[in-house]
């Protein structure tokens, strides 16, 4: 474990806590893409198939359980919670994410570390996570002003993978034979997708103005 990876995991956890706070405090999920939340639930379930077979550390197992449980809880809230579900922007959250799932799985069948069920699903989860934010970014562009907690949620979600890139660079420089092309390239693509969001987020922070993404 290095400081970059710890910062990445803590930032990721923070993004989830901010999202839970927004939903719990405002009893609303307006501005949140349910499709992105469902994609993340698939990402974690596909990535952590080794949850019960490979024990890495208490930290590793604990975080995996947190990520799976929180993503499923958020999807449940947005679908079935009697109050929260009413504020879901159904008519704005229309990204046809089936293609993202299909393309990621097809790519995982072609490009993986080993052709085993666990490795193919792991690569699938890496590719899917890289594009999982797209429905959320589209929803932000369509819905007018973005509330602070939603903006912070997306910001931390984007920042965590940037920390992971620093972690991979650090491990590449300090560990012999360390290579992680699948996660590394996907991580760069994933972080790049946030580039314009980060720009407008920085502008809104600098001008102390409401975050507004151009349509």
């Amino acid at each position: 474990m290095n400081i970059f990876r710890l910062a990445g995991d803590m930032t990721h956890l923070l993004s989830i806590l901010v999202l839970l706070l927004k939903i719990y405090a405002t009893k609303s999920c307006s501005g949140i893409s349910r499709k992105t939340q469902e994609l993340y639930a698939i990402v974690f379930m596909a990535r952590y198939l080794d949850l019960f077979t490979d024990f890495i550390s208490v930290y590793n197992t604990f975080m995996k359980l947190i990520f799976i449980a929180s993503s499923l809880a958020i999807v449940w809230c947005m679908r079935f919670h009697p109050v929260v579900r009413r504020s879901y922007d159904r008519e704005l959250d229309t990204f046809r994410y089936f293609f993202l799932v299909g393309a990621s799985f097809a790519l995982a069948l072609v490009w993986h570390d080993k052709f085993t069920l666990q490795e193919v699903f792991w690569a699938f989860s890496i590719y899917l996570e890289a594009v999982a934010i797209l429905p959320q970014l589209v929803l932000l562009q369509r819905s007018g002003n973005v509330d602070n907690l939603t903006g912070q949620y997306v910001f931390f979600l984007g920042a965590y993978r940037a920390f992971y890139i620093l972690n991979w660079i650090y491990r590449y420089m300090t560990e012999p034979r360390f290579t992680r092309w699948i996660a590394g390239i996907s991580g760069v693509v994933q972080t790049a997708l946030y580039a314009d969001f980060f720009y407008y987020y920085f502008i809104s922070w600098k001008n102390n103005s409401k975050l507004k993404l151009p349509a």
Binding site: D50, I56, N60, M63, W122, Y164, N167, F178, I182, A183
Partner: peptide, 10 residues
């Protein structure tokens, strides 16, 4: 865990 295998990361 074998160092360098990716299952040590989240």
């Amino acid at each position: 865990v074998v160092e360098g295998n990716h299952h040590d990361e989240l």
